[in-house]
């Protein structure tokens, strides 16, 4: 394997860490299961691509516009979630994904299946990030930024409000949490962060096509969140690393690698439904017990 190939894989890993972390705000923190997150990746990627290719705007403008516009569209697309819950919400978010991909495919402005090509490499302060290690650094910085946003958010009253509505909307209302407001916040923040990742995705590939953002991509992102440990900070990171690297590591078994991938997901859900490093996973419990001064054992049962 060439080093360029490895760097490319890790660039995607970094982008998917941002995506999984952003989806975790909506699904893990606020409890709104979404199978439409690829739509937000797509909206960010297309916003950036349109501004760069059609209007020749610099990267930082494309990037910020991708974050803001995807955040606004995410907020608007989150409105139906106020009317539907649980499995109906899953179907609604799937529908959103189909609609967004259809818009990219059938609205001439986005050049349909031909996609938008020749997206320039980003230039920041005179430095051009044309693939390789520099671009990996850029995506890694964004992944860290996303992590910082998620971490900080989890420490704020909003973070607590998200947990409250995920647990029980009536009980949340009884302490003053308007669930509509917080679901919209979750959709908006989650979409905005995914939009930023979309911008980096577009400028990295140099082209965007509607098929990059199909429903299957959304399943992949949700798998990362659940596989790693939903609702935690570490989970989506581990999920993104593991599930992006696995098909590459098992490339030698060729087509069977996806069978293995599927089998691993099934086993995980059977034996570790909270994810590899989720709150009650044996691996997490084991590793926290090794740390001095941990409170895990104390929290397990009532004295």
């Amino acid at each position: 394997m060439s080093s360029g190939y490895i760097v490319t894989i890790f660039t995607f890993v970094a982008i998917y860490i941002s995506l999984a972390l952003s989806l975790n705000i909506l699904t893990g923190y606020a409890g709104q299961i979404s199978l439409g997150h690829a739509a937000f990746l797509g909206i960010g990627a297309y916003t950036s691509a349109v501004l760069a290719v059609r209007y020749g705007l610099p990267f930082w403008v494309d990037f910020l516009a991708a974050v803001v516009i995807t955040g606004i569209i995410g907020t608007i697309l989150g409105l139906p979630s106020l009317r539907v819950r649980h499995d109906f919400l899953v179907l609604a978010t799937m529908g959103v994904n189909f609609v967004v991909v259809s818009v990219f495919k059938y609205v001439d402005f986005f050049r349909g299946a031909m996609g938008l090509v020749n997206i320039p490499a980003p230039t920041i302060l005179g430095l051009t990030f044309r693939g390789g290690a520099p671009y990996l650094t850029l995506t890694a910085i964004y992944a860290l930024l996303t992590l910082a946003v998620c971490w900080y958010l989890s420490k704020t009253w909003s973070g607590l409000a998200f947990h409250a509505i995920r647990n029980d909307e009536d009980a949340a209302a009884s302490v003053g949490v308007g669930s509509a407001r917080y679901k919209i916040y979750a959709f908006g923040i989650s979409a905005a962060l995914a939009g930023g990742a979309g911008s980096l995705y577009a400028h990295f590939l140099g082209s965007v096509f509607p098929d990059n953002f199909v429903f299957v991509e959304s399943i992949g992102m949700l798998s990362m969140v659940i596989f790693g440990g939903i609702g935690t900070l570490r989970g989506p990171i581990i999920g993104a690393i593991f599930l992006r690297l696995m098909p590459e590591l098992f490339r030698f078994i060729q087509d069977y690698r996806f069978t293995l991938y599927g089998a691993l997901l099934v086993l995980m859900m059977l034996f570790q439904p909270m994810g590899l490093l989720g709150k009650d996973s044996w691996l997490w419990k084991f590793s926290t017990r090794l740390l001095p001064g941990n409170r895990t054992s104390m929290r397990e049962e009532i004295p």
């Binding site: 958010l153 704020t156 009253w157 909003s158 607590l160 409000a161 947990h163 409250a164 995920r166 647990n167 029980d168 009536d170 009980a171 949340a172 009884s174 302490v175 003053g176 949490v177 308007g178 407001r181 917080y182 916040y185 609702g231 709150k279 929290r299």
Partner: peptide, 27 residues
Amino acid sequence: KPFATLTVEENVLTGLGMPYYPTSKAL
């Protein structure tokens, strides 16, 4: 209807947040 995944302390904190939830300060 306690918030099952939160600790006792965090459950009580959710109530203390009442004045903040309707404002942007909560973010």
